[in-house]
């Protein structure tokens, strides 16, 4: 029981990341009808927003202390970040909370990148075949990741989480079980809560605002909405921006769990595409459900007991599930009729 609960928890944070990226991917596909292979790169760009902000915050002033010499006889260097010399205690707090703070940076940055990408390139591919959309966004993803590689190097850059959350939570004790049976890192729990909150916010936005209503109407029947006199293209561009923001903040919050490097996006992209297909192309609840489902399945498959029965299952479980689902339920779990079918 404990083991099962622990694996369930293990799957939640990864599932959260899958769900967030898949949500954006589906949103883009549902509105613009574009298969975006560059969506993983947006996740990666978000992660590098966090890296960049932390770099800025930790720019250090180096003071040479001639009184104390190091073992080599050179003066010791006292390094203090500029923000600490300027703001004192508050500066230290800023550095400590750099990852959550990056969300504030990532939102406008990703919005601009998303809209620029849509207006600059993707706009021209609405009516082109899906194969060409895949190809052009694949090329774009290569460009984005190479630019990041140029500025940040090829090595993963670890990001520390805020110290208060660095420990682990005793989840078992919270649920009234024996203490120290199910211990789980705080940040992973936070990531799960965060992803649920973001997903809820996106759904609420689509469900309860006029803007969201128009977008949903446009997804159902683009032409009619256009005939009513609404500039649906503009709203769809905004939705692309929203999808970029969702992928970006997902990337920001994921940095403490996995040090980002330039091909982080590609690694996640393949998995999220599988997630989207399993959930059903064009179905938002499907994408979210499949994200969590596959995340949890993956963590169950990596249990030693399971691996003993079927060796290597943890490596292929997601793809295997995708193949089975595509063959027995061609539209995915919650796919609508007539999406991506000729």
């Amino acid at each position: 029981m404990d083991a099962i609960l622990l694996q369930l928890l293990n799957g939640l944070d990864k599932g959260g990341a899958y769900a967030l990226i898949a949500l954006g991917l589906t949103l883009v596909f549902g509105t613009l009808g574009v298969v975006n292979f560059a969506h993983g790169a947006l996740f990666m760009l978000g992660a590098f927003c966090a890296v960049a902000l932390r770099k800025l915050l930790t720019l250090e002033k180096v003071v040479l202390d001639t009184e104390n010499l190091t073992a080599w006889g050179t003066p010791t260097e006292i390094r203090t970040p500029y923000v600490e010399t300027w703001f004192g205690e508050f500066g230290a707090v800023l550095v400590n909370y750099s990852v959550p703070l990056s969300i504030l940076v990532a939102i406008p940055v990703m919005l601009v990148i998303g809209v620029a990408m849509e207006r600059g390139l993707i706009k021209h591919f609405y009516r082109r075949p899906h194969a060409e959309q895949i190809l052009v966004t694949f090329g774009l993803a290569i460009v984005l990741q190479e630019v990041i590689k140029h500025f940040f190097g090829a090595n993963p850059i670890p990001q520390p989480m805020p110290e208060n959350f660095a420990g682990a939570a005793d989840v078992g004790a919270m649920l009234g079980m024996d203490p120290n049976v199910i211990v789980y890192p705080w940040w992973r729990l936070i990531y799960f809560a965060f992803s649920v909150a973001v997903i809820a916010a996106v759904f609420a936005f689509l469900q309860f605002t006029t803007f969201g209503m128009v977008v949903r109407a446009g997804m159902a029947d683009r032409e009619t909405v256009g005939l009513i006199g609404i500039d649906i293209d503009k709203r769809f561009t905004a939705m692309f921006g929203l999808a970029a923001v969702v992928a970006g903040v997902a990337g920001v919050m994921y940095t403490p769990l996995l040090p980002p490097d330039y091909h982080l996006g590609m690694d996640f992209l393949v998995l999220t595409f599988v997630v989207v297909v399993v959930g059903g192309m064009g179905s938002l609840p499907g994408a979210v459900a499949a994200g969590f489902l596959l995340g949890i399945l993956q963590s169950f498959a990596s249990m030693t007991e399971v691996k003993d029965i079927i060796p290597g299952i943890d490596q292929i479980i997601i793809y295997l599930v995708a193949v089975i689902i595509l063959l027995v339920r061609p539209r995915g779990l919650l796919g609508r009729k007539g999406v991506m079918e000729s």
């Binding site: 599988v274 995708a322 595509l326 061609p330 000729s342």
Partner: peptide
Amino acid sequence: RSGIYFSIL
């Protein structure tokens, strides 16, 4: 399957 589903498979 065909189209993008084939690519994903």
